[in-house]
């Protein structure tokens, strides 16, 4: 009889926003969400209480990353602001701990006004070359593509690709693009694969960003918006085929579908978030190839879009 393995021990860095969702999904997938990092002890403690009250998660609170990473962990989930991602990923790699990182892979707020190509490139190279690199970045919406891949036109024939993502997020202006471009790019990559990107036109408003560019002969348009009054919506168009994401149910019981906006026909999808975290947990247990290359490609395209 095989011995039952203990659940993977996961720490959540920043558990009061999207990290709360990470914690819930990790737990639902059988992981032991054992620790939380907050900006201080009070914040971390509040997150721990919330996780306990909401999901019965018994985690402990840390305010110091070094102390947290000195605990026996099988993985960390980084849900802090993007400006902290790089240092936290490196710290985890240095301790040999696999990382599941919220998108974007990393970003400095100052780059919005003062693009620093050497700094950006150095950081990407540091991650790429790290001897303990085991990295997943949450661009999980690309999983949606799998649900309708046989409904899409052949990638090489596509000349128009549009993607919209409207949320009630709190970012404004250019930060909306920093927050949502990774999703848009992961959908593009899922549909069309890697191509040369050129002729970027970025239009930024308080509650949204429009980004247009040429992608190896395909005209691409992203419509990314965040605001308190927006209806949440995600959809994409490949030439004359159009789908939107539809959620059935709520909370722990929700299901995700893609709906053809013309015919109304629906295709059920894996919950992209859960599916990607499940892949990460499998990687924590069994090793294998990480998702750095995919994350790095997404990051390069993002930098091309956002460079002033």
């Amino acid at each position: 009889m095989s011995e039952k393995l203990p659940p993977p021990r996961i720490a959540i860095l920043g558990a009061r926003g999207i990290g709360r969702v990470h914690a819930r999904i990790f737990q639902a997938l059988g992981a032991d969400v054992c620790a939380v990092l907050g900006r201080d002890q009070a914040s971390a403690g509040q997150a721990v209480r919330d996780l306990s009250d909401s999901f019965g998660i018994a985690a402990v609170a840390f305010s110091d990353l070094k102390t947290l990473l000195s605990q026996p962990l099988d993985g960390v989930s980084i849900c802090t602001p993007p400006v902290h991602h790089f240092e936290q990923i490196i710290a985890a790699f240095d301790r040999g701990v696999p990382v599941f990182c919220e998108k974007p892979l990393f970003w400095n707020d100052s780059w919005n006004d003062n693009w620093n190509e050497p700094d950006w490139a150095r950081k990407l190279a540091s991650l790429q070359d790290h001897s303990n690199r085991r990295l997943f970045v949450n661009t999980s919406n690309a999983f949606l593509i799998a649900a309708v891949s046989d409904q899409l036109p052949p990638a090489e024939t596509v000349t128009q690709f549009a993607f919209h993502f409207h949320t009630q997020g709190l970012y404004r202006g250019r930060d909306i693009a920093v927050d949502l471009l990774p999703h848009a790019l992961s959908m593009l990559l899922g549909c069309l694969g890697e191509r040369p990107l050129s002729d970027v036109l970025m239009q930024v408003e308080r509650y949204g960003c429009q980004c247009r560019f040429s992608y190896g002969g395909c005209n691409v348009a992203f419509d990314l918006r965040q605001g308190p009054d927006l209806d949440r919506s995600l959809g994409f168009v490949c030439d004359d085929v159009s789908f939107q994401r539809v959620q059935e149910g709520e909370g722990m019981n929700y299901k995700v579908c893609l709906e053809n906006t013309v015919s109304g026909e629906r295709w059920p999808s894996q919950d992209p978030f859960a599916a990607y975290i499940a892949e990460f947990l499998d990687h924590c247990r069994n090793g294998g190839v990480d998702r750095f290359d995919e994350a790095a490609l997404n990051m390069r395209l993002m930098a091309q879009c956002l460079k002033p």
Partner: peptide, 10 residues
């Protein structure tokens, strides 16, 4: 705080 958390976790 971190000390007690680390101990509790261990």
């Amino acid at each position: 705080g971190d000390y007690f958390s680390a101990c509790g976790l261990r």
